[in-house]
Computed example of a mutant assay.
Amino acid sequence: MSDIGEHSAQTSLAYDFPLLGVFWSVLWLFLWIMWLVLLFRIVGDVLRDDELSGWAKAGWLAFCILLPFLGVFVYVMARGRNMGRREIAQARAQQEDFNAYIRQTAAGGGTGSVDELARLSEIRARGDITDEEFRRAKELVLSGHRPAEHPGSTTLPASGR
């Protein structure tokens, strides 16, 4: 009789049902990954924030690394309200930099260094510039500077041509 009483008092755990065990494992994995994402966003926010001094950044990073769960939660409570604003400001700044780069590149006439080198090679082949002038102009193009419209004009006086 005591055997029947022990059997009816036995409790079932979630891991007694395989599908429920998989659900709990996936839930814990998801929560762990979400916490890691939040930790990396906080580290990025700390490093990106221009209002914090170097010591404040070091303090927040040490707090989040040494006491990760507590550090993340305290940071979110203390500075979480402005995290989105700082991220949006950074995205806008990156977009403005990209747009400025595109405008600068488009204003350059679309000629790249390959086109510049081909043009210089044609000028040298016609005999308008010497090999030394070609070499100097090629170095300018490869270093990212544009050569003068007539590369030889930098070495010759204006009345020479």
Rank of each mutant, 00 (worst) to 15 (best):
L29S: 06
A158T: 07
H150S: 08
L156W: 05
V76T: 09
L67V: 09
A107S: 13
G144E: 06
L52P: 13
L27P: 00
G5T: 04
F73H: 14
G21P: 01
D49V: 13
Y15W: 08
Q95W: 14
L47S: 15
K138C: 03
G84D: 08
R85Y: 06
L19P: 01
S8A: 04
F98T: 00
I88M: 12
G112E: 01
W60Q: 03
I4F: 07
G110L: 00
V46L: 10
I65S: 14
L66F: 14
E51P: 10
L61A: 14
D97L: 15
L31D: 01
A91V: 01
F134N: 10
A62C: 14
L29C: 06
E87H: 10
S12A: 01
R135F: 15
I123M: 13
R85H: 03
E116H: 05
W28G: 05
K138R: 13
S8N: 06
A62M: 14
L117A: 06
V74N: 07
L19I: 02
W35N: 10
Y101D: 11
L29T: 07
D50I: 15
E96H: 10
S153Y: 04
L70T: 15
G144W: 10
R79L: 13
R119Q: 03
G5R: 04
E122A: 11
I65E: 09
I88F: 07
F63L: 15
W60N: 07
G59W: 12
H145V: 05
E87K: 02
F73M: 12
S153V: 06
K57C: 05
G44E: 09
D16F: 01
G110N: 00
L47A: 14
R85A: 04
R85V: 05
E149V: 06
L52S: 11
G108I: 02
S153C: 07
Q10C: 01
G80M: 12
V26S: 04
R41A: 13
M34K: 07
Q94E: 09
G80D: 11
L31S: 01
P157D: 09
A9M: 01
L20I: 13
M83A: 12
T111D: 06
F17P: 00
P68V: 15
A106P: 00
G71W: 15
V22C: 09
L156G: 06
V76E: 11
T155M: 11
T111M: 09
L38Y: 06
P147N: 00
L70R: 10
W28L: 09
L117G: 04
R81W: 15
S2W: 02
A158F: 13
D16G: 01
R135C: 09
H145T: 07
S113N: 02
I123L: 07
R136F: 07
F69M: 09
A106S: 05
M34L: 08
W24R: 12
A100E: 11
W55S: 12
G21Q: 04
W55R: 15
V74Q: 08
D131H: 02
R41G: 13
C64N: 13
M34I: 03
L29D: 00
T154K: 11
G160K: 14
T154Q: 11
A89P: 00
M34C: 04
Q10L: 04
I33H: 02
R79D: 08
Q90N: 12
L19R: 02
E51G: 15
L66D: 13
A89M: 08
S121M: 05
Q104H: 06
V26W: 05
N82E: 02
D115R: 02
L120P: 00
K57E: 04
